[in-house]
Amino acid sequence: MAASPIEQFEVYPLLPIQVGNLDLSFTNSSLWMVFAVALSTVILAISARGGALVPSRLQSVSEMMYELVANMVRDNVGSGGRKYFPFIFTLFVFVLFANLLGMIPHSFTVTSHLIVTFALAAVIFIGVTIIGFYRHGFGYLRMFFPHGAPLWTAVILVPVELVSYLSRPVSLSVRLFANMTVGHVLLKVIAGFVVSLGVFGIFPFVFLIALSALELFIAALQAYVFAILTCIYLHDALHMH
């Protein structure tokens, strides 16, 4: 019988580590994070070593990623965004590799766990807020009150803006998590049909192929969306709307 479609999301310890009351075990999730970091580091290091004028395939992949993020930062963060490029690039590459590695059968999709994406989003949210206060001091609080609105509307507008601001890390993390989880569950369910329908499994199988292509595209697209939203938040912190 087909395996449960949510079995793939199970986290289990590979190397149990217990520090006090904290369970710091090295899990399969940690392993695939390490894979994502190692693979991206190796690919970028190898492709950057040559530095040929006419790039090899690998080098042009790296250059495409670099240019994509460089353009994204330039267009969305605006002036003063240059120094945040390394962070955005790292973030993009990590999410991209985590998503793409998740497409390998029997692998583990790191980004299909809300806590992982939420941790990423929380780091971004806290970092961006600190940058905002560092840049503008308490003037950053004007962010929560639109310029030129009558003062009495502050009673309504400030809570609304505050909630809108606080919902950013939630929407950022939920979007990535939901996309990855839904896609992988769908893949597993359709794959289950392929097995259980016997000869007629060819129909879901064809659909599965198309779906896998779509999922690969979504894996890349969601990494892009994650990075671009970080850029937009950064822009708000640097230039205040």
Partner: peptide, 20 residues
């Protein structure tokens, strides 16, 4: 699918604000 992503983005944003 880019349009789908935009729609998804909007849906998640509305839900996230409500939840928060």
């Amino acid at each position: 699918s880019e349009g789908m992503a935009a729609g998804f983005r909007v849906a998640v944003e509305l839900t996230a604000a409500l939840v928060v």
